[in-house]
């Protein structure tokens, strides 16, 4: 195996997984252990609030004076192939007025200009992930050392004519500052996972905009998050190659680990969905390829998850 075909999921390589089919019916069920599968989008009561008369607290920071009176630049997202969605193509295009979400189908075209801070703040986009429910743009500002994850709309809402985030009538881009630079990340469904090593990771929830810092024994900088059949799995080459992650009804997280004891797993080669199962292929210390399969029953909850080594 030459350098170009070595295990694909090193810490520096970001896996790309296509968004799963919408299975909202699977993602709202409570598991026997009390785990609640992630909901694709929380239905936030968005009724109009009464007109407030509150006064504002003092603003404690000011915008950089260097930008004052100067032309600012627009973010330019990297070129990525569009996402196929219901017979159309969904993508982000750069225009003179900045990036815009675009959905094209049968000669019809919808454009939604993204409302973004200037590129001077966000830095340079490094990666774009298109999803059916939500999309993400990752940026890094080399001058400030800050990285951002921008949550924006997915193909379904743009195709349906929405101009702002789901359950929101104000914004169509939520730029979330990452408190520290991750080793690697995964796009899985409506969430971004950022891995930092030493059991620590962060989850950015697109529906709420919440960034949660979690610690789970076994999660590493080599972990990959996979959304399979509406459930979330963390896959990593170590003694705990599969961790199922779920959110309880109170919003907190819960995890179940599956240990592998037959040999030491040293690398994750790849993963794939085939024949009704999610297969993860690992290398062990003896150089053998070990497959661990994950199946999820019709009920779509933890009680029906089967893990099999082969």
């Amino acid at each position: 195996m030459d350098d170009k075909t070595k295990p694909i999921l090193s810490s520096a390589v970001v896996p790309h997984i296509q968004p799963r089919k919408l299975k909202s019916d699977l993602r709202r069920r409570e598991t026997p252990s009390g785990l609640l599968v992630f909901a694709s989008s929380l239905l936030v009561a968005a009724g109009a609030a009464a007109m407030p008369v509150t006064s504002r607290a003092p603003v404690t920071a000011v915008v950089s004076s260097s930008a004052q009176g100067q032309e600012t630049s627009q973010l330019r997202v990297p070129d990525e192939p569009p996402l196929e969605f219901e017979g159309g193509n969904f993508m982000i295009e750069n225009s003179d007025n900045g990036p815009q979400l675009v959905f094209e189908r049968d000669g019809q075209r919808r454009e939604v200009p993204l409302m973004l801070p200037p590129a001077e703040s966000l830095g340079n986009p490094t990666k774009v992930y298109y999803g059916e429910e939500y999309s993400f743009i990752l940026t890094r500002n080399d001058e400030t050392g800050k990285s951002y994850a921008i949550i924006t709309m997915g193909a379904a809402d743009v195709a349906a004519g929405r101009e702002t985030l789901p359950n929101n009538d104000l914004i169509n881009a939520d730029c979330v500052l990452l408190p520290s630079e991750p080793i690697s990340h995964s796009f899985a469904g409506d969430k971004m996972f950022f891995f930092y090593g030493e059991n620590m990771f962060r989850i950015l929830e697109a529906d709420t905009g919440r960034l949660r810092r979690l610690t789970v024994q076994g999660v590493s900088g080599l972990s990959v998050a996979v959304d399979y059949e509406g459930l979330y799995f963390l896959i990593q080459p170590n003694q705990t190659p599969v961790i199922f992650l779920g959110r309880k009804t109170d919003g907190s997280y819960e995890a179940q680990a599956f240990d592998y004891n037959a040999s030491e797993l040293t690398g994750l080669v790849r993963y794939e969905e085939t024949e009704g199962r999610l297969s993860a292929f690992f290398l062990n210390s003896g150089g053998q390829t070990i497959e661990i399969g994950i199946t999820v029953g019709e009920e779509g909850n933890l009680g029906t998850v089967r893990i099999e080594g082969r």
């Binding site: 252990s33 409302m115 973004l116 801070p117 703040s121 966000l122 951002y148 104000l170 914004i171 881009a173 939520d174 730029c175 979330v176 500052l177 408190p179 962060r202 905009g209 919440r210 960034l211 949660r212 810092r213 979690l214 610690t215 789970v216 024994q217 076994g218 705990t240 961790i243 199922f244 992650l245 907190s252 997280y253 819960e254 995890a255 179940q256 680990a257 599956f258 240990d259 933890l302 998850v305 893990i307």
Partner: peptide, 18 residues
């Protein structure tokens, strides 16, 4: 499967909107 503890740390979240 065995349950594994999930620790959630406090996080100061900062969003930028336009």
């Amino acid at each position: 499967a065995r349950p594994v503890r999930v620790e959630e740390g406090a996080e100061a979240e900062r969003h930028t909107y336009a």
